[in-house]
Design a protein around this nucleic acid. Sequence first.
DNA 1: TCCGATACTTGACATAGTGAAATATTTAGG
DNA 2: CCTAAATATTTCACTATGTCAAGTATCGGA
Lengths: 145, 145
Amino acid sequence: MAPPRSDPLTREVVDLIGTIVARYNSEYEQAAAQHALTGAQAKVLGLLTAEALPMRRIAEKLTCEPSNVTGIVDRLEARGLVERRSDPQDRRVKLAVPTEEGASTARRLRDSLEFAGEPLAQLSDDERRVLRDLLKRVLGAERPG
Amino acid sequence: MAPPRSDPLTREVVDLIGTIVARYNSEYEQAAAQHALTGAQAKVLGLLTAEALPMRRIAEKLTCEPSNVTGIVDRLEARGLVERRSDPQDRRVKLAVPTEEGASTARRLRDSLEFAGEPLAQLSDDERRVLRDLLKRVLGAERPG
DNA sequence: TCCGATACTTGACATAGTGAAATATTTAGG
DNA sequence: CCTAAATATTTCACTATGTCAAGTATCGGA
């Protein structure tokens, strides 16, 4: 395939993305901590507010083993943020569902994360659109039509 | 301060950055694993090849407690990738220095990471320059002159 | 009915992370 | 010079994440 790109420009962009990643991770972790959640717990809670999920699906979204999810959901359940509900269609399956409190925690978390997106205020609407399109292309989301 | 920005465009860009972060993390972890390193070990080894560092400095760069660094360097040392060297200037200090093998591992790791930057090939040089400048602005790296 | 797949949990283990206490050394004051 | 505070590292106990292998329950098809 394409030759390894070691030109200074590419390296510079890669480094910038590395910096963005570091900052994002740190802000995410910090926002989670403000609600007494770990990063993993916050991620799972966030997933579940979009839609209740079987343990297996959570593991897939997190790219980890299902046995790992057991522990994370255990801790969320112990804090009353999530409930396990048996799937009547298939009694092997346990759906993880956020409680009322879990949902509101997730909502507040999402708000602080959005607020953390504040640095984007540096950019005009036009610039944000350009940035959006470039990021989409980098992610290979480009589909003609 | 600025009002919390919940317009669709900002949210879209924030989501895209989230996706970039997820992909970056996963590729980093995977590249590290190819050299039988964890993410934390790879990060430390990378830091050290730029410059030998006291334990304290490593902790600062990782934003974690020094006691945590002890373990990470222990494991790198056990694998012969890093050495602890006493600082003659201050005998309290231990410098972590990569061994020959540690340096070459770090080099190979860096190469695979650069290769992982391949998605950028989607963009022309001009577009990469635009992306670079926008990212710099978002990071607040803007300095006139 | 029986057998293999599937979903989840459990248990043993490694890594990463925290915080508090112990040790060694440096540095500043008196 | 001597002591006290500060600093660098380690150790220990503890929690969270993560893996893998084994066990249990359920589902589905021959």
